[in-house]
């Protein structure tokens, strides 16, 4: 029973981080109709900045302060997004999708090199936050308490985002701009401002995913591409542009991956790709996506 609970918690842990990344990707696509291939880099920036602040810059500071500084990576990712959208992406909105993919792919390469340039090729860690919380006993096994914090943050982020999109004025404006940009502008909505806000929020979510996971996994070069691939599997399953889809997709990937690691570790990733392929064949817009 204890082992089963640990597997469930691991699946939820993985799903929480994946939801933060894929939810941001989906939000950006839903509002701006742009597939941001550099989205994984925002996740990596979140991880690196938090690892650097907590594990290097302020090492030795009171632990409470370090915990409060976890969102530093998310804020750095959000700030990066707020600069990228109006300067690099906006000029390409009226061009064909291929140009948008090319520019975000270029951005992926640039941001990867920027991370390497700033922090070098070696992993960065903030494990003090992970070890400080210790473990709790589940049955006969021990489970890291920090992981429960990550699961809680993922759940809270999903609830916050749902309320933000469906229960606030800005959410109504955001949904209006995502459904008909021309009409939104004709009703007085500054669509450019909505775009930069949505992009910044999406980047914040990706950055939060990186920031919250870095105490239990080091920040390493290449983590951005791994995250991007998994985020795409999530949105393919759930439906690109749908937050509900991102949540369900993240849960599916989390559970399948955890089961895969336990039962058939050699083909764990292949199973995920297979599920994504089946969804694409049977329901091309994803479980919660809407066909045009």
């Amino acid at each position: 029973m204890g082992i089963l609970l640990i597997h469930i918690l691991n699946a939820l842990l993985y799903a929480s981080v994946l939801f933060l990344i894929a939810g941001g990707l989906s939000l950006i696509y839903g509002v701006m109709r742009i597939v941001n291939l550099a989205h994984g880099n925002l996740y990596a920036i979140g991880a690196y900045v938090t690892a650097w602040v907590v594990g290097q810059w302020l090492v030795g500071a009171p632990t409470v302060v370090l915990y409060l500084l976890i969102p530093a990576g998310a804020l750095a990712a959000a700030a990066t997004g707020a600069i990228i959208e109006p300067t690099l992406l906006r000029p390409f909105y009226k061009r064909a999708e291929e140009y948008q993919l090319l520019v975000t792919f270029g951005l992926l390469m640039i941001l990867e090199d920027v991370v390497r340039f700033i922090w070098g090729p070696y992993p960065l860690s903030a494990s003090v936050l992970w070890s400080e919380l210790g473990s709790i006993a589940i049955g006969d096994a021990l489970y890291p308490t920090y992981n429960l914090l990550v699961i809680a943050v993922g759940g809270l982020a999903a609830a916050f985002l749902w309320m933000f999109v469906y229960r606030t004025r800005f959410g109504v404006v955001l949904r209006a701009a995502s459904q008909d940009m021309r009409m939104a502008a004709a009703l007085g909505i500054n669509v450019n401002r909505v775009y930069v806000q949505a992009f910044t929020l999406g980047c914040f979510m990706a950055g939060l995913g990186g920031a919250i996971i870095v105490p239990s996994q080091s920040a390493v070069l290449g983590m951005s591409v791994d995250a991007l691939i998994l985020a795409f599997i999530v949105v393919v399953i759930g439906g690109l542009g749908s937050l509900e889809g991102a949540l369900v997709g993240a849960l599916v990937v989390g559970v399948v991956r955890e089961a895969g690691i336990a039962l058939f570790p050699e083909i764990e990733l292949a199973i995920l790709y297979l599920i994504a392929a089946i969804v694409l064949l049977v329901r091309p817009a994803g479980l919660f996506g809407r066909t045009a």
């Binding site: 004025r169 109504v172 209006a176 008909d180 004709a186 009703l187 669509v191």
Partner: peptide
């Protein structure tokens, strides 16, 4: 366009331009 709307030019397009996923009340609220 948004500046013209705020100056006082109202617009109802040929296809009505109603936001499909918003309720009628939300369409008015915007």
């Amino acid at each position: 366009a948004h500046q013209r709307a705020r100056q006082g030019i109202g617009y109802a397009p040929e296809d009505a331009g109603i936001f499909p996923d918003l309720t009628v009340a939300e369409n008015f609220q915007i």
